[in-house]
Each structure stands twice: as structure tokens, then as C-alpha cells.
Amino acid sequence: MDGDHISEATTIAIGEKKISVIGKGKDKSSIGTGALSSTGALFSVSTGYLEMSHLKVDCNSSANPSPSVVVVSDGGGSLSLEDVVIATSKTGNYVLSSSVFVVPLSQLSMVDGEIINMNVSKPLFSEPDLSSSSSSSLSSSALYLTATASGESMLVNVKVTNVKLTEGDGVAAAKSVKAGKIFTVQNVTIDD
């Protein structure tokens, strides 16, 4: 999963099932975006549950806009990231031009993660464009979004280092948490 296997062009659609992508460690296992199309995603989650653990997401695609790794529709699908580092092996003036993860705020969790050494012109995490919903008018300039599938939002043990937003205001969350829900930030470090 190092991004060098450019022959694959298909996505994996996840329905009702729970699917886990578990690496041997983020220093050894990686998913590279270099093999992905800018018009699709590696994982498309509708009503299933996707967990990604112990690996690195290397944003190494030269496509513009940058391809997404996971897209979660505004339904019963959810995404969990645990012990994941999101970084890029690209150097120089390379700028990530679209979101790596597109997922509703209430359907994403991130625990023990790192986001390091990136220039981004769009948020790393963004919500789907729901043109039929009032949420479409909300700001899309979020650096990251995170929450659990139950709607109790969490950002736990996350380190953000040397991530520069080249456009937008860089707010942490573009969607407010509904009344009765919880937003928790624990042991989060943001540098540079």
C-alpha cells in the first residue's frame, strides 16, 4: 500500500459491513494517494463502518485536485482513525489541493493521530457537499474534523505539526455540534 502500484483504479465500496485496514505500524505500512484518481476515492462508505489503524496515509499524488482516500456519505457510514499519521512525501512548493477525508462531523473519530509536514489549500477533513441541506452554507475551511459515529465528537491524543493552510481561515471544525451532543478535546498539540 505504498502508492507505487498505479495499476489499480477501482474503489472499494463499503455497505453494511465493518471493514478494518490495519497495518504493521505507521513507520512500515502506508496508503499512498499516488495511485488514486482525483475523481474517486479508495474507500467509499455508505452504511458500513471503516476502521484504519496503525498506518500512514502518504499524500503523494500529483493530481489536481488531490484524490480523496475515504468519502463517507451522509448516511449510516462512519470512519475511525487510530494510530494513524497523515503526511506527505512530496517536497518543495507542493500543496494538497483537496480533502483527504470527506466525512460528516458526526461520523468520524480520530485517536492517537499525527498530521505533519504538509501545505494544504483545502481542509484535510471536510464534510460532504450536501446541496439539499442547510449545512452546505457552512464554512469549508476546516483543518480537521472529528467525531464518533454516535455524535459525541472527539479529538484525542492528536498532534498537528508544521501544517500550513495556504487558503481559508483554518478553523478546527466547520460544523457546530448539535444540542445534547458532546465535543471533547484531549491531549491535542498544534505547532507551527
Rank of each mutant, 00 (worst) to 15 (best):
N157T: 01
L130I: 15
V160Y: 03
A179Q: 04
K164D: 10
M118Y: 00
P128R: 12
S106F: 13
S136R: 14
E167A: 10
S131G: 12
N117M: 06
P104T: 07
M110R: 02
M110K: 03
K181G: 01
A174K: 06
N157H: 10
V171C: 05
S176F: 12
S176G: 13
V120E: 00
A142F: 08
T161W: 13
S132Q: 13
S139W: 02
M154F: 15
I182L: 10
K159S: 10
V171L: 11
G168K: 00
L143R: 01
L155Q: 11
K164P: 05
S126M: 09
S135L: 12
A174L: 07
N117G: 04
G170E: 01
Q107C: 12
S150G: 11
K181S: 04
M118T: 06
D112Y: 14
S136P: 07
G168I: 00
S126Q: 07
A147V: 01
S135W: 03
D129A: 11
K178T: 10
E167M: 00
S121D: 01
S137T: 07
E114L: 10
S136G: 09
M110H: 06
K181E: 01
N119I: 00
T161L: 11
K164L: 08
P123M: 02
E127Y: 15
E127L: 14
L145G: 04
V171S: 03
L143S: 02
A179R: 02
V160W: 03
N157M: 08
S133Q: 10
I115W: 08
T161H: 12
V163M: 00
I116P: 11
N119F: 00
S121V: 00
M110G: 06
T146Y: 15
L138R: 07
S140R: 14
D112N: 12
N162D: 10
S153P: 06
I116W: 13
K122S: 07
Y144I: 08
N162T: 05
V163N: 02
A149K: 11
L124E: 02
